[in-house]
Computed example of a mutant assay.
Amino acid sequence: MKKIKKWAENLLKQLELLYKIYTYPKTPWYAKISIGIVIAYALSPIDLIPDFIPILGYLDDLLILPLGIYLSLKLVPDYVIEECREIEVDLSKFKGKKIVSALLISAIWLLLIYLLIRRLFR
């Protein structure tokens, strides 16, 4: 259980680092796109694979998110990562905005699903 807790804490630290990198002005545009997708997926109340599906439901949390973090960090130059590790960011301002961000991300998912269905049945 301690390993799982440590893994989850490390995942949160990596997401915090991604946020710092995303807001950093020297970050390349292609890395910002990748990081934005990963952060949006992490905040999204809708999973790619629903959690009620046995075993597969948790694969996105255990594999897709860490893989997205890893690939996003590979796109960022090392000097940017090091500079961002030293930046202090107050993330407490986001605690009260969870509902708003969940609604926004849900709306984006619904829009994408609508556009996909519309395209398929045209």
Rank of each mutant, 00 (worst) to 15 (best):
K2S: 15
K3I: 08
K3W: 14
K5H: 12
K5R: 15
K6D: 13
K6A: 15
K6N: 13
K6H: 06
K6V: 08
W7H: 11
E9S: 04
E9C: 15
N10M: 14
N10E: 15
L11Q: 03
L12Y: 12
K13T: 05
L15Y: 12
E16C: 14
L17Y: 10
L18D: 06
Y19P: 08
Y19T: 15
Y22R: 14
Y24N: 13
Y24D: 14
P25K: 13
P25N: 09
P25A: 07
K26R: 11
K26G: 08
T27Q: 09
T27M: 10
P28G: 06
W29D: 13
W29M: 12
Y30M: 08
K32W: 09
S34C: 09
G36Q: 09
G36T: 11
I37G: 10
V38P: 06
V38S: 05
I39W: 06
I39A: 05
A40E: 05
Y41T: 14
P45A: 04
D47T: 11
L48N: 07
I49E: 09
P50H: 09
P50L: 04
P50S: 07
P50V: 04
P50D: 07
D51V: 09
I53T: 03
I53V: 06
P54E: 03
I55G: 05
L56H: 04
Y58S: 10
Y58H: 13
Y58D: 12
L59S: 11
D60K: 01
D60S: 04
D61T: 02
D61R: 01
L62C: 01
L63Y: 07
L63V: 03
L65Q: 05
L65K: 01
L65T: 04
P66D: 02
L67Y: 10
L67P: 00
I69Y: 08
Y70Q: 00
Y70R: 08
S72G: 02
L73V: 00
L73H: 01
L73N: 00
L73K: 03
K74W: 00
V76H: 00
V76A: 02
P77A: 03
D78Y: 07
D78A: 03
Y79I: 12
V80Y: 07
V80R: 04
V80A: 02
E82P: 00
E82F: 00
C84S: 11
R85M: 08
E86H: 04
E86M: 12
E86I: 03
E88I: 05
E88Q: 11
V89A: 11
V89K: 12
S92E: 04
F94A: 08
K95E: 10
G96L: 04
K98C: 01
I99S: 10
V100K: 09
V100P: 08
V100H: 02
A102Y: 10
L103M: 10
L103S: 04
L104V: 13
L104F: 11
L104R: 05
S106E: 06
A107R: 06
I108G: 06
I108F: 05
L111N: 01
L112E: 07
I113T: 11
I113D: 07
L115T: 14
L116W: 09
R118V: 04
R118N: 10
R119Y: 12
R119T: 08
R119L: 11
R119W: 13
L120D: 10
L120F: 14
L120T: 07
F121H: 13
R122L: 13
